[in-house]
């Protein structure tokens, strides 16, 4: 049986791991390659590296990081952050990334999704969507959730699927950093309206939040950062608890 995935996310700035609370305050949580190896050993099913550097050398720094992670880690990983062209993706995949995730660049130019899918295949193209509930409507946000758009989350997600993306990584800006649980209503709606896997992100604070997002949110995978980095929840223990709750999990 296909299992639900637990995905630690490592935010990367200039080759180091950081995690922002509500994407603002950054705290250093160590060397990404070392952290990746630890997570793989502890039973993480996949890893996501999200690059938030803004330097001119970022492309090379990220490619180097991807190379060193691929060298050491025997589980799949996705790389995202600032990817906006076929060349960006090509470099990352050649250095050993399994998947890439694109976000703002896809909203600005949706054809990018089709172009990447045609060149590299659906299986390695993840589209990340940051959204926030404004009154009753979920609106897509850009630039790490800072810039609101008029685009509706569900319409955009449907378009992303039709354009061939293999997977959607949905972050609720309302839940991110709160540790009060994932945006399960929106997640369940995404999961029932689309036929590609959905990764839940934003709001993990307790084991029960993961159980809820897999059952109520119908998520295929759940991503979290700080609770893993600061060992508030150990991955191994989390997975054992989920198994007890009847969630299909790889132990």
């Amino acid at each position: 049986m296909l299992t639900k995935r637990i995905i630690p996310c490592l935010d990367i700035k200039n080759g180091r791991t950081v995690k922002g609370i509500n994407f603002v305050d950054l705290r250093d949580a160590g060397d990404p390659v070392e952290l990746a190896e630890i997570y793989a050993r502890e039973g993480a099913d996949e890893l996501v590296f999200l690059d938030i550097s803004a330097t001119e050398e970022r492309r090379k720094t990220l490619a180097d990081l991807v190379y060193h992670v691929a060298e050491k880690v025997n589980i799949p990983f996705t790389v995202g952050g600032g990817i906006s062209s076929i060349e960006d993706v090509d470099i990352l995949l050649k250095n050993g990334a399994d998947k890439v995730s694109i976000n703002s660049s896809a909203v600005k130019r949706p054809d990018l999704i089709n172009e990447l899918v045609a060149k590299f295949g659906s299986q390695c193209i993840v589209v990340a969507i940051d959204a926030k509930q404004i009154e009753e409507n979920w609106k897509v946000h850009l630039v790490g959730g800072k810039v609101p758009t008029e685009t509706d989350l569900f319409e955009w997600a449907k378009e992303v699927e039709e354009r061939g993306a293999g997977e959607i990584l949905f972050t609720s800006m309302d839940h991110d950093g709160t540790k009060n649980g994932f945006a399960n209503q929106a997640l369940a709606k995404l999961s029932s309206e689309l036929n590609i896997p959905i990764i839940a992100s934003g709001g993990a604070g307790a084991v029960s939040h993961f159980t809820d997002t897999f059952i109520d949110g119908k998520a295929d995978a759940a991503l979290a950062a700080s609770i893993f980095h600061f060992k508030e929840i150990e991955i191994k223990q989390l997975k054992e608890e989920l198994k007890k709750d009847g969630i299909p999990i790889r132990l």
Partner: peptide, 28 residues
């Protein structure tokens, strides 16, 4: 959901390719 992405189990293992690999092991 298509694609299938993630860890699933393998069973009915035959061949030396699976020497010392347990039935129902997880693969990506």
């Amino acid at each position: 959901k298509v694609p299938q992405i993630g860890w699933n189990q393998i069973e009915d293992l035959k061949s030396d390719l699976f020497k010392e690999v347990q039935d129902k092991s997880y693969i990506y």
